[in-house]
Amino acid sequence: MNTLALLQSDVSSPSVAPVIFAAITIAILGGALSVFVVLKRLAFIGQGVSHAAFGGVGIALVLGVHGATTMGAIGQLAIVIAFSILAALWISALTRISKGRTDTAIGVVLSASMALGFVLFTVSEGGHEHDDHGHAIEAHQDEHHIIEEILFGNILDTDWTKAGISIGFSLIVLMITWFMRRRFIFWAFDEPVCDAYGINSKRTTDIFLVLLALSVVMAMQITGVVLAAAILVLPGAAALNISNRLSNVFGYSILIAVIGAAIGMLIGFQADYPIGPAIVLTQSALYVVTLLMNKAMSRLR
């Protein structure tokens, strides 16, 4: 089902099942990855990659791939994923070249990608003006719709096809992370000695960043570019407030992510708030709660 068909279908009973399934799966992914993101201090890389994805959307538009049809949406997603992975690896390479200055590398990639995105948006708009007039206006509206979706997310757009793609990618990333957990934990705990212990730190960094880039793109499906990094940070940060045991931290993080997504969606649907921001707000509230629990626990000791 494409967007138009979804909008034309019975609005009073929108198909929320795929939305819920997609959101919960992506929340679980965020819960698992966020522990590494927080402990390895990669929150800003997530931010960089999500904004860099904007450049990917620009490329998709110039290539004439629009998100209005299902095939278009898949094509656009593929281009955004490819571009985000490149951005993550670019940040990693620039960090190495600039002697470990990750913030500089992110600054460069984030701004370059966003600038590229905006330039390409303009170029693709300009291209349409030479077409027949009616088509250009339609495409123009399409672009604005896409920009809005990319920046702020539109999870209500999720049909079973989109949900299936999100769930599939999330499960793949989760499986690879599970498979590589020992290596990732060692790398994140003590990167400087990794190589001496037979773990290639460069390769491990790059593999994790690819997984992070994929997760960011999945998170964008819920929250859009602006808030994507949040659901890859908040659950882990909250879990670390309340536990000192690694396995528990992962458990709590996933739990907090899922509860946050569930309550967020409930509030969003009930009060007709935008779903993505509602989820981020709920997870933020849970973070504050765990922070207070942390303070209370340390006072009791």
């Binding site: 934990i185 060692f186 705990f189 003590d190 990167e191 000695v193 212990y197 670390l240 536990s243 690694l246």
Partner: peptide, 19 residues
């Protein structure tokens, strides 16, 4: 240079030696 804020026990750190 290990991150000592990590939620990890002594035994888990020693176990990295088997990686």
């Amino acid at each position: 240079e290990s991150d000592l804020d990590w939620p990890i026990s002594v035994e888990q750190v020693v176990a990295f030696g088997r990686i």
